[in-house]
Design a protein around this nucleic acid. Structure first.
Lengths: 112, 112
DNA sequence: TTATTATACATAGATGGCCGAGGTTTGTCA
DNA sequence: TGACAAACCTCGGCCATCTATGTATAATAA
């Protein structure tokens, strides 16, 4: 495959980095915000998100800081790093290639 | 998820059924034909394809018959069934939804 | 003639992403 | 006081895919 085969399995990473490209966010917020922006199509599970965030941090694609919310609850805010932006660019390119080639194959199908 | 979460992991099935929508094909041909139509982006592995084909047959989405090639070699030709066409329609709809919502999220990202 | 490559099928084991299920803490509301 | 939402976390398992390997035949190269 020309495309990283984990693109689609790894589409979650593309989506998360896209969210963080706009503003820093905390995990729980990413879940609700992703659902909102995708018209409830992507309902990310906590058991999926948190391990990925830890992985992104380990790779240096995001940085973390703790902040208290107005109500006093502590949240972990994630911010995309420069390296993370480069990774996002790459993933976006891969996504476009993937999307175009899936469409190419699907559209080559004879209509029912 | 509103979309079957195995869509992308399962995008392979969408691609295979799309190929078969046009004409009957044998396994090895699907690999080369898929590579051709996707500009070498999708290079399906035999170890991936054959188990999937057996699964599609078990589900009744494709039917099989053996035919000899001009050179005398025996091939297994797969043909999409009526049920397979309905499954393809469904997968196509899911793909469109998936594609649109990924784009929605990606495009909501602030440009670098 | 022999060796290699391409065709054509197949399976078993390993890998890796994602989810289900469970758990903890803190704040809010009845 | 109890119930619920917010916010974080981990572990075990499923499932799609890949790697590796095996078999057999035809075409091609040495």
């Amino acid at each position: 495959m020309k495309i990283d085969k984990s693109l689609m399995s790894g589409s979650t990473t593309l989506l998360i980095l896209s969210l963080l490209a706009g503003e820093e966010m905390y995990g729980y917020q990413m879940i609700t915000e992703l659902a909102r922006r995708s018209n409830q199509v992507f309902e990310l599970k906590e058991g999926t998100l948190y391990p990925i965030l830890h992985g992104l941090e380990a790779e240096g694609l995001v940085s973390v800081r703790e902040r208290k919310s107005p109500e006093g609850r502590t949240r972990k805010y994630y911010r995309i790093t420069r390296k993370g932006r480069r990774a996002l660019d790459q993933r976006q390119e891969e996504w476009v290639t993937f999307r175009e080639q899936v469409d190419a194959v699907v559209n080559s199908a004879a209509p029912a």
